[in-house]
């Protein structure tokens, strides 16, 4: 199938979609309505002027600097200290008590400038964060690997098409570009440089038609 609206139609569609996407990123950046953040004020707003939020529900993230009573610092420098009342009993994902350096995210009512009465809290240790990054990287690489093995970029059509498989394409007419033995080069092909020159030659021939 050729491009239903030609390559220019495809480019136009991509430009419109891309503009909408970039527009939405700028739009959210310009408004306070962050879809991923909670609707409650968080430590970035509360730490500089806690007195403005006394009596309000806020969510404070930080690390434990003291355990009796539990105190967190919302900034890495150790600045922005808040006492968390009842936090050990309100942890959702762990049995207390918290230990120094544990990461905590606590939601509750700011009783005074430096005291949060906790309703709900979650905690994580720094090793768990490292685990999350590691397995996330593995997940990402797995997908990239599968895509590279399963799909190839057809330079003539300027689009990704499935690599030919023994059984996948038996019902599909073979496009002229795919009949060439170079079309099915795997990523492990040591002759990829020669492949490229042959691709270029073919592109050149097609251009002359």
């Amino acid at each position: 199938m050729s491009e239903p609206y030609g390559q220019s139609g495809r480019v136009l569609a991509a430009v419109i979609l891309g503009a909408l996407l970039v527009g939405s990123l700028v739009w959210v950046g310009a408004t306070a309505a962050e879809p991923l953040e909670s609707q409650y004020p968080d430590e970035t707003e509360v730490t500089p002027e806690p007195e403005a939020y006394v009596g309000e529900q806020v969510v404070l993230g930080g690390f434990v600097v003291d355990t009796d009573p539990v105190m967190i610092a919302t900034r890495a420098s150790g600045y922005g200290q808040f006492t968390l009342v009842d936090v050990d009993d309100r942890l959702q994902n762990a049995e207390g008590p918290l230990e120094p350096d544990d990461r905590v995210s606590a939601f509750g009512t700011l009783e005074d400038e430096s005291t949060l009465v906790v309703e709900r809290a979650t905690t994580r240790q720094s090793s768990e964060t490292a685990y999350m990054y590691l397995v996330s990287a593995i997940g990402g690489l797995w997908v990239v690997g599968r895509f590279v093995r399963g799909w190839r970029f057809d330079r003539r059509r300027l689009a990704f098409v499935p690599r030919r498989r023994r059984d996948a394409d038996r019902n599909r007419p073979v496009a002229p570009s795919e009949r060439s033995p170079t079309a099915d080069h795997s990523s492990a092909n040591p002759d990829s440089r020669r492949d490229d020159t042959e691709h270029d030659q073919r592109a050149h021939t097609n251009g002359g038609e």
Binding site: R10, S24, L25, A30, L36, E37, W151, R157
Partner: peptide
């Protein structure tokens, strides 16, 4: 300009991203 990546992780961002992604494939 003001900027935030977070729309990528919402319904609206997802729709735009997958439409763009499908344009990379042959028709």
């Amino acid at each position: 300009v003001p900027f935030s990546w977070s729309p990528l992780h919402t319904l609206g961002g997802t729709v735009l991203v997958i439409c763009l992604g499908s344009l990379l494939l042959a028709p």
